[in-house]
Design a protein around this nucleic acid. Structure first.
Lengths: 290, 290
DNA sequence: ACGATCAATGCTTTCAGGGTATCAGATGGA
DNA sequence: TCCATCTGATACCCTGAAAGCATTGATCGT
């Protein structure tokens, strides 16, 4: 096809051959071969001048197209390999949706506009599973400790705050700690859904020898807040989710509040070249560790 | 690329090689060569299983596209060569626009829907020039006799009629011939524009020893009728243009009316394969020769 | 009529790419 | 744990597609 295009553009066997870095005779044979295999005369030629047939003229457009697409495919695959283009499946938990995730996504989209970011909001446990299964390329979740096959970037350290209805008795108490919460109805995500969060809550109480009275265990953070709003209990949630408590709700700091590490994670064996700069950007936006 | 696609689809060197009608070792080398020249790892493989890298997955889409376009280009060029597809530049004179042209165009468009018909309305002389210059592939014009390098299909034989204002003195005369037109102001296209038509008109008069009094010589048929409508003279025009004379106009038969052959013409040396069936359709619609 | 130009043809040569044999790593069953 | 088996990679060879060179033949301008 490149031979054909060279001749179609120059209409001169000698010059076209030169453009293809070869001598004229084999070039002539190649053109003849193309015409023979296609079964179509592409050039009208005598020993003096060369012209495209209508078929040749049509074929020229198609060839230009095909060759262009071909070059682009070769260029693109290199871009994908360099991480400049492609797709990155990014999972995150609701708890991070209002803190680090927007900034991370925005910075990355600016740095790598040709990488399609596929966002996927999941629970921490789902995220872990999907990271090992390879369904996600990277994810923001709570640090749940041991994860040998994952690389980890600490993004932020969040304190938990307590959230409750404004008309709750504790709303007037100055310092709230485990003792004040003794016997209080607590709503918290199940350990199976958010192990790190739940274990932080549990140890906050058990360190003082108190067993929290967990009355409801919804899987979604969103649901927890709704149930608190209905007056079914109080909840311990990350500070970044407390900036705009819903109507009728109020959040308070906790004494010796538990801290949770929000991390960006990706399989160390990832084959997706887009991940590395994503992690780099993660490092660059490490929040002040409160 | 076909090698790559075979492996990308089977994810098995042996079976992919078989699909490409070759043995596995050279196939492995080809894949390695592709990866090397692109500088991109396309497959993640150990001795047990083969998987696409993200780059490979992306490249697969592009390859499918390119290969499809390539196949289509090869198919299309054959279609063009067979006259099933392509372009046909078709010229015609105004005098035929209301008679044979619509039928010819419609029948051809039905027979060869993938050939783009480029219609070009011209004067007979322009048509002749464009046919020899190769700017037109085929054209409908008056038969102007000798044309060795053109193939000709007779489409219709048209008598000339006279057209005049309804209030013209001749409008009441029963038989109109050269004698009745003696001294009459005649409007006719110049010989340089429509040689066949003009010479038919001239000889109609000169056969009776009469010199027509041609007062105006507009190039366009359209203009002639307008001038007749303004009362500037009478005109001899093909019968097919008289079916709907404009307001205030009337047409009459002529005694021993001159006849003109309307022909479909194309260069015998035409390289456009679409022309032959166009000519065939021309033959098939030969009108009853009045 | 002759020389210049340009595509086609004949012949030679080379290396890209295919074939066969074999190796090496991984997996699964005995 | 070991062996049979599967699968991709390597080593080596060989063929033929395709390139080069020399030449021919046709056409056009002087």
């Amino acid at each position: 096809m490149r031979y054909f295009m060279a001749l179609a553009e120059t209409l001169h066997f000698g010059r076209a051959a030169e453009r293809m870095n070869m001598s004229q005779p084999p070039f002539s044979r190649q053109i003849a071969m193309i015409e023979h295999t296609l079964g179509v005369k592409l050039f009208e030629r005598n020993s003096r001048n060369v012209a495209l047939t209508p078929s040749g003229k049509h074929f020229m457009k198609d060839c230009r197209n095909v060759l262009g697409q071909f070059e682009e495919a070769c260029r693109d695959v290199r871009l994908v390999a360099s991480g400049m283009k492609g797709e990155l499946r990014f999972g995150f938990m609701m708890h991070a949706a209002h803190s680090v995730v927007p900034q991370l996504v925005q910075l990355y989209a600016e740095a790598r506009p040709d990488v399609r970011l596929v966002l996927d909001e999941r629970t921490p446990t789902e995220i872990d599973e999907m990271l090992v299964a390879g369904t996600l390329d990277a994810a923001v979740t709570f640090d749940c400790g041991y994860a040998p096959h994952l690389q980890t970037v600490l993004l932020a350290r969040e304190r938990l705050r307590i959230i409750m209805r404004k008309d709750h008795p504790l709303a007037t108490v100055g310092q709230i700690g485990p003792e004040e919460l003794r016997g209080e109805k607590v709503i918290a995500a199940p350990a199976a859904t958010a192990p790190a969060l739940r274990s932080a809550i549990n140890s906050y109480f058990s360190a003082r020898g108190i067993v929290p009275h967990v009355v409801l265990e919804p899987r979604l953070q969103h649901t927890i807040i709704q149930l608190v709003a209905k007056g079914l209990g109080v909840a311990l949630i990350p500070a970044s989710l407390c900036t705009e408590p819903g109507a009728g709700l109020i959040s308070r700091a906790l004494t010796d509040a538990p801290q949770l590490d929000v991390v960006l994670r990706a399989p160390i064996t990832t084959k997706n070249p887009a991940v590395s700069t994503f992690m780099e950007i993660g490092k660059s936006i490490q929040r002040t560790l409160l």
